[in-house]
Design a protein around this nucleic acid. Sequence first.
DNA 1: TACCTTTGTTTAACAGTGTTAGATTCTTTT
DNA 2: AAAAGAATCTAACACTGTTAAACAAAGGTA
Lengths: 199, 199
Amino acid sequence: MASKDRILRGKEETRTNILNAALSIGKKEGWQALSMRKIADMIEYTAPIIYEYFDNKDAILSELTCKGFGKLAERMETAKAKHRLPGKQLESMWMAYWNFAFEEKEYYQLMLGVEMSCCVLKPTSSSMKKPSELISEVIREIMKHKNPTEDEICKWYYTFWSVVHGLISINIVRQGVSDDINQQVLSNALTGIINSISA
Amino acid sequence: MASKDRILRGKEETRTNILNAALSIGKKEGWQALSMRKIADMIEYTAPIIYEYFDNKDAILSELTCKGFGKLAERMETAKAKHRLPGKQLESMWMAYWNFAFEEKEYYQLMLGVEMSCCVLKPTSSSMKKPSELISEVIREIMKHKNPTEDEICKWYYTFWSVVHGLISINIVRQGVSDDINQQVLSNALTGIINSISA
DNA sequence: TACCTTTGTTTAACAGTGTTAGATTCTTTT
DNA sequence: AAAAGAATCTAACACTGTTAAACAAAGGTA
């Protein structure tokens, strides 16, 4: 019967309406401000009907997370298709990853568990600067024979920090990376960067 | 008057009691489960007195964040003091950073905004694996002349991912890194890793 | 048409959250 | 002992996720 189809289509539509509403609230007010009642308001229903379509709030976020990974994969695929040399392909794919993270920041935060609510308040707190100063000092020392600019030191500091923090947060969010690989990636990266600096 | 001192000391003590209670709840149940009433229960008071010591919940978390950076800086300083060569110092300091992140995971999550609530549910979702497979494929291609093991490919994949995700999440949490430095760190790291793979 | 069942939707509630105002109890000072 | 001050609690507000029960509308059946 066609009416059954129409109803089915209608149900599927409000399902995606829920997802779209959740995403738009996340984009506009941040994920911490997302609530079932806000979603319901936006799709002009009351909160409990959402539970006809999703088990709970986390299920909505999980589905958006999956959609996010899909979008990311798409971007990386088209980025790869633009080049033939594998080296260029890799560069292009990671650039696509980078661009995705900022153009679809809310998706990315969901996918990789990146908050930004609380500690953003004190960006220049002294205790917060201490570790960066400690490291920068040693980088300056190790590079003193080639008179580096402050930007260069900063660049190397962020290179270190990125790889270490990245590996850590990947491990925290997606636990199950083998310790062996962790240790190899970490020490390889560290000695690689240190060599690049000293050379 | 000594009684005034005793009272002052008492106030300072419940202040740190609040911080300790918050930390212990965060450690035991995760930060998403932290509530003012739970803190109050733990220090055997009712919730509103906490507001005599802290403006709001975020202020407690901010203070713990600062304490975390202090502890991290301490560890990095003692790690540095164990070596004389700057290269060894850097390695040791970043290892201290690494160890801190896991031994004081809750502090680290607060400091760098690393969640882990929702997307941890589906670690092996197919849409989640797509990007990693896409990249690994190209790494395999680029390394095919030296018959790499699957572990080696995995290692390089995580090296890429760590640096890119690390830089991204640092930018999201601590906005204000100059675009120039971002671009330099990113492309430097990418070409550096690609060269290491191809060599 | 009348009834019954199924489906969609809402209301009301529970237990919890951060936070504030007002009342209350205790301690110190006069 | 009375008044003033500080410390603490009760009660409330406006939210949160979630569930059970009530209600209304539609469908099928007799």
